[in-house]
């Protein structure tokens, strides 16, 4: 038995580095790290990762965590763009790591590819790519995102026409990933702004014909931290992994406030 000097796999590793798959190219993944127990300032860490064009950025992060540095911390649950837990800033724009393909980030002309990954901005960073989502959810809860009705409940379901349902269809798609809110420059500098996601979820109920809390929510969003803070930069619409027309939804709330008509 020949004794080979092997460096022990890093802590939390899933074992030795697997062979690079056929057709893969090596890309540099540059990650903004922060370990509150060691660092006083965030720092950049780079990893060389073999990537297939069909890989998602999440696969690269898995590779780093499983084989290169087990201390890398990030959220991901379903890994298929449904749960919305892996929102991060990829090459400067907010995306879900599980929905961005490497082939769309490749630099052309045979140049080396660098993919930068940062935590979403405007929320306190706990560690690496993991941020404190509580301010985000606090704004979400503040717009009362649940059905409000009065009077007796109907014996059967609450009936709604297809046209009434279509009125707020776009904003029902929100998965609360915080891509939009943390792409908003107003939210970056002023955390008390409700942010696009909260307004989207208010919109979902304001324009629901079955709901009776529209006035209450409109009053909340008419406040100094409400929709009038929106500067229509369209960052939110661009960031939304579900393709929600976020800025349009905010404008519709503004219009409802202006004309007091839902």
């Amino acid at each position: 038995m020949t004794a080979t000097v092997e460096t022990a796999p890093p802590a939390g590793s899933r074992g030795p580095v697997p062979p690079a798959p056929e057709g893969s190219t090596t890309v540099t993944v540059k990650i903004r790290r922060f370990n509150p127990e060691v660092d006083s300032e965030p720092r950049w860490d780079s990893f060389e990762v073999p990537a297939l064009p069909t890989d998602r950025v999440l696969n690269l992060l898995h590779y780093v965590k499983w084989y290169l540095d087990g201390t890398l911390t990030f959220r991901r649950s379903c890994a298929h763009g449904i749960c919305g837990s892996d929102a991060m800033r990829i090459n400067g724009v907010n995306r879900l790591a599980c929905k961005v393909l490497v082939k769309d980030l490749m630099s052309g002309g045979g140049k080396a590819t660098t993919i930068t990954v940062e935590p979403i901005k405007g929320l306190p960073v706990h560690k690496d790519l993991l941020v404190d989502m509580e301010p985000f959810f606090e704004a979400f809860r503040a717009v009362k995102p649940y059905l409000m009705t009065s009077g007796n409940e109907p014996t059967r379901e609450r009936i709604q026409s297809q046209a009434d349902r279509a009125r707020f269809d776009d904003t029902t798609k929100c998965i609360l990933c915080a891509c939009c809110t943390t792409s908003c420059p107003v939210y970056w500098s002023e955390g008390s702004y409700f942010g696009p996601a909260a307004i989207v979820n208010a919109h979902r109920f304001i324009f629901d014909s079955r709901d009776e809390g529209a006035e209450e929510r409109l009053d909340i969003l008419n406040d100094v931290d409400g929709v009038w803070r929106c500067r229509t930069t369209f960052n939110c619409t661009d960031a939304c992994p579900r393709g929600i027309q976020v800025t349009k939804a905010i404008q519709e709330v503004k219009r409802a406030l202006l004309f007091r008509r839902v």
């Binding site: 503040a142 009053d219 100094v224 931290d225």
Partner: peptide
């Protein structure tokens, strides 16, 4: 029970 200040009914921002 929102932790935010309750919304004031004024239209200054509007």
């Amino acid at each position: 029970s929102p932790r935010r200040r309750p919304a004031r009914r004024n239209n200054v921002e509007l």
